[in-house]
Computed example of a mutant assay.
Amino acid sequence: MTDQTKIALITGASRGLGAALAEALAPEYHVVAVARTTGGLEELDDRIQAKGGSATLAPMDITDPNAMATLCRSIHDRWGKVDLWLHTAIHTSALTPAHFIDAKEWFKALNTNATATSVLIPFVAPLLGESGHAVFFDDPKAGEKFYGIYGATKAAQMSLARSWSLETERTGPRVSIVEPRPMPTAVRARFHPGEDRDVLSSTAEEANRLLSLL
């Protein structure tokens, strides 16, 4: 691996869209794959290696600021940069009426979807520098019935991303927000149980489509 190696940091990489993006980027990028699920990361690593690519696995919880600080310092010490950051990590709460929201579930979603993003942006921004590219994935559910927890915390994440995007228009890094099409992921299955998954876009197809837009 040379100093010219392109580095892609993917938070939420063990399954779903994050894993599909990681596979699509290999072997053009060395992938730093972050997720809590060690088994999922190891399976992803096997698929990346089968394509002739390489990955660094980081089985970490993005809601742990110390872990994220250690990760970013390690990336800096090893490569000095991140060329592309794809933030797909998300916590999906069960659909529930607003007047039945559980406080513990609310704070778990808030910590993962919003607070962790507010911590990661300052940590990753120096690694991206002026020429790097950060990508966030919108799923606009704010204000829809039964989506109170997910909709509100996802909207908070997107608000941070949009502010950062405007703030860096002239200075970099580039910050993009894209909206994936419905995919047969565990996230969607939790919201739409019993849905015909055959009519949805595969994660691989959607990963390639989104990367083509970027």
Results as ranks from 00 to 15, higher is better:
residue 68 M to L: 09
residue 55 A to W: 05
residue 108 K to N: 03
residue 114 A to T: 11
residue 140 P to R: 08
residue 141 K to H: 13
residue 47 R to K: 10
residue 122 P to G: 05
residue 114 A to V: 07
residue 117 T to R: 01
residue 48 I to L: 13
residue 48 I to E: 05
residue 74 S to F: 06
residue 71 L to D: 09
residue 82 V to Y: 07
residue 128 L to T: 08
residue 60 M to G: 00
residue 97 P to C: 08
residue 65 P to R: 01
residue 61 D to H: 00
residue 134 A to S: 03
residue 69 A to H: 11
residue 80 G to M: 09
residue 129 G to D: 12
residue 123 F to D: 07
residue 103 A to K: 07
residue 116 A to R: 01
residue 106 W to S: 06
residue 99 H to K: 07
residue 57 L to R: 03
residue 95 L to H: 09
residue 109 A to E: 06
residue 117 T to N: 03
residue 137 F to H: 02
residue 120 L to S: 02
residue 79 W to A: 15
residue 144 E to A: 15
residue 74 S to V: 03
residue 128 L to E: 05
residue 105 E to F: 00
residue 112 T to S: 03
residue 56 T to Q: 15
residue 111 N to L: 02
residue 119 V to R: 12
residue 109 A to N: 08
residue 53 G to N: 05
residue 143 G to E: 11
residue 83 D to F: 00
residue 141 K to C: 09
residue 143 G to R: 15
residue 64 D to V: 14
residue 56 T to Y: 07
residue 81 K to V: 12
residue 101 I to P: 00
residue 66 N to S: 15
residue 121 I to M: 05
residue 71 L to Q: 13
residue 110 L to R: 02
residue 135 V to L: 15
residue 59 P to I: 07
residue 88 T to E: 06
residue 143 G to S: 13
residue 53 G to K: 09
residue 144 E to T: 15
residue 64 D to W: 05
residue 89 A to V: 07
residue 92 T to Q: 12
residue 128 L to P: 00
residue 106 W to I: 07
residue 51 K to A: 14
residue 122 P to L: 07
residue 122 P to Y: 04
residue 119 V to E: 06
residue 110 L to F: 06
residue 135 V to P: 01
residue 95 L to D: 09
residue 99 H to S: 05
residue 63 T to N: 00
residue 85 W to N: 13
residue 56 T to P: 05
residue 132 G to N: 06
residue 113 N to A: 08
residue 115 T to C: 00
residue 98 A to G: 14
residue 124 V to D: 00
residue 140 P to C: 10
residue 79 W to M: 13
residue 141 K to R: 12
residue 134 A to G: 03
residue 100 F to R: 14
residue 73 R to M: 09
residue 76 H to K: 08
residue 110 L to P: 01
residue 109 A to H: 02
residue 101 I to S: 01
residue 138 D to V: 01
residue 123 F to V: 00
residue 96 T to K: 10
residue 57 L to E: 06
residue 63 T to Q: 05
residue 97 P to W: 08
residue 145 K to S: 15
residue 101 I to T: 09
residue 48 I to K: 08
residue 134 A to T: 04
residue 121 I to T: 02
